[in-house]
């Protein structure tokens, strides 16, 4: 395959970026998208040019490190797939592919295609946990949990924290990410104990990070490589409403 690549290049956070066009021959359709970029980088290196910075690690679709917006879609055209599991056979010979970083004020571009997603960690730090210290736990089978409920919680817990939801959202809202954790923990009896405090704190932190507001566009769900449902957002809204009006937090 022969490809034309239009790739966003930006030397650092505070320097203006622009698109550069590269052409790449002999791309095998068995290559993964990131391997294609590896090949381009190796080529750039030998032309004494600076290789393109992009993030990746596990390359099996679970660590959430890879990102990229490919032809306008976070993680590319294939639904339910991370960029690292996207293969070149999903593109046509001679195609022009536009590769951009995630765009959101809360995710500043660090270099080229790398962005800072630390805001997501800070949302978890605000309350995305169950406060149980090591050694405090009772026997694992002490609390039975309905299989369906556990499975529902699991669906929410499969979030890999890649931030595609924010990138896909025209409002750059982080509601899907935040709600996935809220839902995972609120559904389980262990998590119910501090559910009110959790949702209030996590939403507060989410707002502080300058994410946009959800207007139920559902692009997040469509682009989520793990198919996390927007029903989690409704659940979070519910939790937040009830916590706002009934929790003991007077603020």
């Amino acid at each position: 395959m022969k490809l034309t690549l239009k790739i966003w290049r930006q030397p650092s956070q505070n320097v203006k970026g622009k698109f550069e066009t590269y052409s790449l021959d002999n791309v095998s359709e068995h290559m993964s998208f990131l391997e294609m970029l590896d090949v381009l980088n190796e080529k750039l290196s030998f032309e004494q040019k600076v290789p393109i910075a992009f993030e990746h690690d596990c390359r099996e679709g679970i660590c959430g490190t890879c990102s990229l917006v490919i032809n306008g879609q976070p993680h590319g055209p294939l639904q339910g797939t991370t960029t690292c599991q996207l293969h070149m056979r999903n593109f046509k010979d001679g195609e022009t592919i536009v590769i951009e970083p995630y765009r959101a004020s809360a995710f500043p571009v660090l270099k080229d295609l790398s962005v800072d997603r630390g805001a997501l960690d800070r949302i978890i730090q605000a309350g995305g946990f169950i406060s149980v210290s090591t050694g405090q736990a009772q026997d694992a089978n002490a609390i039975p949990i309905e299989k369906d409920v556990a499975s529902h919680a699991f669906d929410a817990a499969t979030c890999i924290g890649c931030g595609a939801c924010v990138a896909a959202c025209p409002n750059s809202s982080a509601m899907l990410f935040t709600s996935a954790k809220v839902a995972h923990l609120a559904l389980l009896p262990q998590g119910k104990v501090e559910a009110q405090k959790r949702v209030l704190n996590m939403v507060r932190q989410m707002d502080l990070e300058n994410f946009g507001n959800c207007s139920n566009i559902t692009a997040c769900e469509a682009e989520c490589p793990k198919g996390i449902s927007v029903s989690n957002i409704a659940l979070m809204n519910r939790e937040f409403l009830s916590a706002s009006f009934s929790s003991n937090d007077a603020n």
Binding site: V69, E100, S173
Partner: peptide, 12 residues
């Protein structure tokens, strides 16, 4: 929401 998306939008 516009501010949250930032100044630079997607080219595609």
């Amino acid at each position: 929401n516009k501010m949250a998306k930032g100044k630079i939008g997607y080219a595609v």
